[in-house]
Simulated scan of single mutants.
Amino acid sequence: MKSPVPIKWVRPVKVPCTHPEKSGDLQPLKEIDLSRFPLEFRDSEELKSADDNVKRILSLEFFNRKNTMEALINEYKDSVKRHILDEESPEVRVAVMTAYIRDMQRYLELNPKNKLIKVRLKESIDKRKKLLKNLRTWDYKCFEWILEKLGLIYKPMPPIDVYRRVERKRSLRMLTTKYCEDIVSKKFVEYKEILENQQESFLEEKIKTLEWIMKEEKYCGVNPTVTPSDIEKTKEDLENLKASRSKK
Rank of each mutant, 00 (worst) to 15 (best):
R245P: 04
S79Q: 11
P158E: 03
L85G: 14
Y154D: 01
T225F: 04
I57A: 13
S59F: 11
Y154I: 00
N53T: 10
P158G: 06
S201I: 11
E109W: 01
H19L: 02
K8V: 09
S35M: 06
K22W: 08
E190G: 10
L110W: 15
L210E: 13
R245D: 03
S185A: 11
G151V: 03
K127T: 05
D182P: 04
L85Y: 15
S35Y: 10
D182R: 05
Y154E: 00
L195P: 12
E190N: 13
V94P: 04
K247M: 06
Q199P: 06
W145G: 14
R102A: 02
R11N: 11
M157R: 01
E123F: 02
K242F: 05
Y191Q: 12
V5A: 03
E167F: 01
T209M: 09
V54W: 03
R245Y: 04
V119N: 05
E193N: 10
R165K: 10
D52K: 07
K192V: 09
E46L: 00
L34Q: 10
Y219V: 08
K130A: 00
W138A: 13
S3D: 15
N64W: 03
E91N: 08
E193L: 04
C180S: 12
M104D: 00
F202P: 12
K169Y: 09
N111C: 07
T176I: 09
